[in-house]
Structures are given as structure tokens and as C-alpha cells.
């Protein structure tokens, strides 16, 4: 089951570029939360702060508090521990090309020394079923490489890979932006099914996508969070003029 995320006074920099300024929000457990905003507004940086990926960039810097469940991830834990609990799906599908489909899904567990074969088989099957890929790949799990799949399948494989470690939070950084419409709708269906079990944070450029999958939506602009409310309110009756301008297509 997922846990909620509490963000307090989060600031982030790339070198001297202040990309995130005083972000405060509460992301509810077991719901999908969408983050929208024009390019370069800081939404990707924000999700990368939630699993401490931002600091893997040599010039990245973060201050503030992020609490995932009861864990203050910047004070009480090391990045490696956080990332085992928080799964991430990236914009471009990035399966491991030298591994079979099976090994791709099992990668997170094998990495951490999990070696119970039978349990691993079950987890791989469950993760692939959860990511709606099982029926398409079950016959050549160990024969085909992760790179032999189509783009949409690869992205679902990446989702399966993230799910296999049973994360509490699933971060998705524009998971469908490199995919065709059919694959996109599959991914959206998937998010819809997964959000009862996981806390999902999804960054998207596509406002209809946010409206379709998320209960809560946050609007980012120039490194600040302008508005955070229920998706319905954001899209029908936003309280901020800038949000309204953005969702009605006046800029961005």
C-alpha cells in the first residue's frame, strides 16, 4: 500500500539556477496526483526531489523537507534506501537492453540480493500482469531482450520493473510523452488501475491526461507551485488567474 507525501519548503537548484522555490504540498496516499505546467517550470525537478535523484546531478542541490510516510527522506535516510521504496518511470523507456524481459523486471530485487527463485518467478509474473504486459510477453520472458519490445511495451516493462520492488510511491515523469496514442491510453488505463495500490505522482504535458487519471492536480510555473487542488476544481474553476490562462491554452 502506498503512503502519503508531505513536502515542506522545498527548494532546489541547478548550479545557480533556482529551479524550485518554496514548494509546500501534501500528496495523498493511494491516489494519482498530476503535475502540470509549461516546459522548464520545475515539475520534473520536483519529482526527482522525491526520490533524491536530483542530487545525482553534480550541480543539483536541495533544501527543505520531504516526508514519505513517516520518513524524512533528506534527514533520516540515504538515497539508496529511499529509491528502494520509491519507484520511478522515466520519460523515455529505458529497459536494460542486455537483459531478458524477465531479468529486466527482476533487476531491482536481484540488485538487492534477492535470490529466491520461485518467489522471483511469482513477482515477475505479478508485476507484468499489473503492468498489462504479461499476455504479450509470457512466451518469451527469458528469450527476448528488453530492447526487442515496441516503445509502448518497453514503457510498460519499465513500469513492471518499478513495481517489482513493491514501492510505496510510484513517480512517473511524463511516462507517455514518447509514445503513440494507443500505447498512451494503455499506460493511462494502467495508472487508473494501479492508483488504488500505490501513491502515484505523474508529471505530464498533456492536460487531458491529467484530467483523465488524477484526483489531484498541481500547476507549476517558473519554479513555483501556483495552485494545488482537486483535478475537477483545477480544470473547471481554478482560483488563480495564471492556472486558468494555462488550462485554457493562453500560454504554455
Amino acid at each position: 500500500m502506498g503512503v502519503g507525501i508531505e513536502v515542506i519548503n522545498l527548494n532546489a537548484w541547478y548550479g545557480t539556477n533556482h529551479t524550485l522555490q518554496d514548494i509546500n504540498l501534501h500528496i495523498p496516499a493511494n491516489h494519482a496526483t498530476a503535475l502540470i505546467g509549461p516546459s522548464g517550470c520545475g515539475k520534473s525537478t520536483f519529482v526527482r526531489c522525491l526520490n533524491r535523484m536530483h542530487e545525482t546531478n553534480p550541480v543539483g542541490r536541495v533544501t527543505g523537507t520531504v516526508r514519505i510516510g513517516d520518513l524524512d527522506i533528506y534527514a533520516d535516510a540515504k538515497p539508496v534506501q529511499i529509491r528502494r521504496r520509491v519507484g520511478m518511470v522515466f520519460q523515455r523507456p529505458n529497459p536494460f537492453p542486455t537483459m531478458s524481459i524477465y531479468d529486466n523486471v527482476a533487476a531491482g530485487l536481484k540488485l538487492n540480493g534477492y535470490s529466491n527463485r520461485r518467489a522471483l518467478d511469482e513477482i515477475v509474473e505479478k508485476s507484468l500482469r499489473n503492468s498489462a504486459l504479461w499476455d504479450e510477453v509470457k512466451d518469451d520472458l527469458k528469450k527476448k531482450s528488453g530492447a526487442s519490445l515496441s516503445g509502448g511495451q518497453q514503457q510498460r516493462l519499465c513500469i513492471a520493473r518499478a513495481l517489482a520492488v513493491d514501492p510505496e510511491v510510484l513517480l512517473m515523469d511524463e511516462p507517455a510523452s514518447a509514445l503513440d496514442p494507443v500505447s498512451t491510453s494503455k499506460i493511462e488505463d494502467l495508472i487508473f488501475q494501479l492508483k488504488s495500490q500505490y501513491t502515484i505522482v505523474i508529471v505530464t504535458h498533456n492536460m487531458q491526461q491529467a484530467a483523465r487519471v488524477a484526483e489531484k492536480t498541481g500547476f507549476f510555473l517558473n519554479g513555483r507551485m501556483v495552485e494545488f487542488d482537486s483535478t475537477h476544481k483545477i480544470f473547471t474553476n481554478p482560483s488563480d488567474k495564471r492556472t486558468e490562462d494555462y488550462i485554457t491554452g493562453r500560454f504554455g
Binding site: 535523484m53 539508496v80 522515466f90 529497459p95 531491482g108 540488485l111 520493473r161
Partner: peptide
């Protein structure tokens, strides 16, 4: 990034994400 996001240490990242490829 894919390997790091799975909770890999730096050495595991190099082994799985770089040397393997």
C-alpha cells in the same frame, strides 16, 4: 538513471548500468 532509481549503489550502477551495456 534506471539503475539508480531501483536503489542501486554507485558500484551496482556501474556494474549493471554501464559495464553490462
Amino acid at each position: 538513471e534506471a539503475v539508480l532509481a531501483l536503489g542501486a549503489t554507485r558500484w551496482e550502477m556501474i556494474r549493471m548500468g554501464v559495464l553490462r551495456n
